[in-house]
Design a protein around this nucleic acid. Sequence first.
DNA 1: CATATTACATAGCCATACTAGGTATCTTGT
DNA 2: ACAAGATACCTAGTATGGCTATGTAATATG
Lengths: 124, 124
Amino acid sequence: MAFDLENWKTQIRKGYLELCILTLISREGQIYGFEILSQMEKFEMPLKEGTLYPLLNRMTEDGVLAAKWETQGPKGHPRKFYSLTAAGKKLLWGMSEEFERMVSVTQNLSKNERRKKNDEIHTA
Amino acid sequence: MAFDLENWKTQIRKGYLELCILTLISREGQIYGFEILSQMEKFEMPLKEGTLYPLLNRMTEDGVLAAKWETQGPKGHPRKFYSLTAAGKKLLWGMSEEFERMVSVTQNLSKNERRKKNDEIHTA
DNA sequence: CATATTACATAGCCATACTAGGTATCTTGT
DNA sequence: ACAAGATACCTAGTATGGCTATGTAATATG
């Protein structure tokens, strides 16, 4: 409701988590959900199951990820492994490019001092 | 509906635009809405009026921004100038810190090669 | 055999960006 | 004088993704 830092941190994660997770899958080649959770925690960007699984299902439905079940022999819960499709790799590339652009915009905004029109401020 | 790059670009802007705009206001000291639109366009991060004005009103209601109307003498449409409150400065600081953290996480995710089990990668 | 851990899944809530419109004032061309 | 465009702000409604809370199963452990 109120505009506080915690709420903002939730908002800024939208889209960003997908970039992180696609990057992680790309790096690992293939990986299953629970392992993503622990890796993301290791990288100090933890997320909840209720965030991850809908995200993975969405991206699988949309042809960004390929999923296959693997049983762990006689023991262990079966795991659903995800990997990038060709479309997924292309998407990740586009996302990385845009994110870098965003980073450079914030850097420019912070850095560039306003030089032109010192006089204009007095308007009137 | 579909998971495409354009939709993602909309999502990733959530929260990010607020960081940009607070940074811009901080830099300018005070600035009015229409000028924000043209500055953001100059920095290659354009946004629509329907995005900006609700955002400014929200942040004003929540005590992040201070707003005051200024008439342009006998000529010109009156302008609503925004500046950061103390709470706004504090919020911007927290947001910048978090954004930098996010950037470093993506860098680590992209960079760090998986060293353990090299053999596993070459399979097939 | 009860509890914890591993592992995946979904319904419902909420905040933000976008689309598409609206109002009002001032400038410019004819 | 009047139409068109630029300046300037505003809002209702929609779509989307992250979060909370909860559920289901299987295996491991004391």
